[in-house]
Amino acid sequence: MKKYLFGVDIGGTTIKLGIISTEGHIIDKWEITTKKGDQSDQIPNDIWEALSLKMNDHQIDKNQVLGIGAGAPGFVMTETGVIAQAVNLGWIDFPLGELLKNLSGLPVYIDNDANIAALGENWLGSGDLAENLVAITLGTGVGGGIIANGQIVSGTNGMAGEIGHMTMQYNGAPCNCGRNGCLETIASATGIARITNERIDKYPNSILRDIRSLKGKVTAKDVFDAYKESDELATEVVNHITDVLGLAISNIATIVNPSKIVVGGGVSKAKDALLVPLEAAYKRYALPRIVEGSSFTIASLGNDAGIIGGAYLVKQHQL
C-alpha cells in the first residue's frame, strides 16, 4: 500500500502544506491563509481541514498516512510539540502537536521552521543527506538549523540553532529578541538595509543614493545589485556583513564540523555576490582543517523546503 507524509510550514502570512511520498515526490502542495491574533488558535483546525480535503481529492485513506510534520516560527518544545512562544502568531505555550494529533488521529511531529527547512534541504535539496550540516536562512531575520550525526539539533528546550541571535556586537543595534548586536541585526535583509542607510550620506557618488531618492528606501537587493556594479558604498556594506557572517559561521563550524554549509532565504538570491565574499571571510576565520572538510552552497528548494522537511521529520520517526 502506498504511504504518504504530510508536511506543514506555518508562516506569518500563509501556511504551506504538502502531500509527499516516502521517496520524496511532491504529490500536491498548496497554501492557506494564516489566521492571527485572537483567531490564531484556529490554525490546527484549518490545517487538518485543508489536509482532509486534499486526502479526499487524491483518494488517500488515513491508514496510508504515516504522520504530520510541522514547522512553526518561534521557540518550539520538540518533545511535547508545544510552541513556547511565537510572537507573530500570538502563541504562548500553545499545544500545537497535541491539538493536531487529537484532530487527525495521526502521529504528529513539531519543530522550529528553520530546523524543518534544514531537514528539507538536506533530504532533497543542496545538502545531499550530509551527516553534519549547517543551514542559514537570511531573510527579514536570520534563521538557522544544525544537523549533527544525521539528526537535527534541538537542544534542551528547543533553542538550539538560533544562529540569528548570536551576539556579534555587544553594543550593537537593538534586536527584536530584546538584546543588542545579534547577528540578525547585521546579516538579515533588514540589517543590511539599516547599515546601508546609516552610511549612505558618506558616499555622495553612490548609486544607492539615487535609488533612495527614487524609492524612498534602499533594500538588501539594491545593495547587492550595486555591489555587482562595484559601487563603493555597496562594496563596503557587503564586505562588512559577510565578514561578520563568516566569523559567525566559522565559530559554529568549530563546534559542528559540517561538511555542508547551506545558505538560503531571500538574501541568498544574490548568489555569488553573497557567496564569494562570505566563503572568503569564513576561510579567514575558520580552522584550516575544518575548511578542508566543508563546502558552501546556496539552498535549492526555495519555498518547498519547509513542507519537505516536515515530511522528512515524519519519515525519520516512522521508517
Rank of each mutant, 00 (worst) to 15 (best):
residue 4 Y to H: 07
residue 5 L to A: 07
residue 9 D to M: 09
residue 12 G to C: 11
residue 14 T to G: 03
residue 14 T to S: 12
residue 18 G to Q: 04
residue 18 G to P: 08
residue 22 T to K: 05
residue 28 D to S: 15
residue 29 K to D: 08
residue 33 T to L: 13
residue 33 T to M: 11
residue 34 T to H: 07
residue 36 K to T: 15
residue 43 I to T: 12
residue 50 A to F: 11
residue 51 L to K: 10
residue 57 D to R: 15
residue 58 H to G: 06
residue 66 L to P: 06
residue 69 G to A: 03
residue 77 M to P: 00
residue 78 T to H: 06
residue 86 A to F: 10
residue 102 N to P: 05
residue 119 L to E: 01
residue 119 L to N: 01
residue 127 G to I: 07
residue 129 L to D: 06
residue 131 E to I: 00
residue 133 L to E: 00
residue 135 A to Y: 13
residue 135 A to E: 00
residue 139 G to Q: 09
residue 139 G to N: 08
residue 145 G to A: 06
residue 148 A to D: 01
residue 158 G to Q: 04
residue 161 G to L: 03
residue 165 H to W: 12
residue 169 Q to T: 09
residue 172 G to W: 13
residue 192 I to S: 06
residue 198 E to C: 05
residue 198 E to S: 10
residue 200 I to C: 06
residue 202 K to H: 14
residue 203 Y to P: 11
residue 213 S to N: 14
residue 221 K to V: 08
residue 222 D to F: 11
residue 224 F to R: 05
residue 230 S to G: 02
residue 233 L to K: 10
residue 241 I to Y: 02
residue 241 I to P: 04
residue 246 G to T: 10
residue 252 I to F: 05
residue 261 I to G: 05
residue 268 S to A: 15
residue 269 K to N: 15
residue 271 K to Q: 14
residue 273 A to D: 12
residue 278 L to T: 01
residue 281 A to E: 03
residue 282 Y to S: 02
residue 293 G to Q: 14
residue 302 G to C: 09
residue 305 A to I: 14
residue 309 G to D: 03
residue 312 Y to Q: 10
residue 313 L to G: 10
residue 316 Q to E: 09
residue 317 H to S: 11
residue 319 L to R: 04
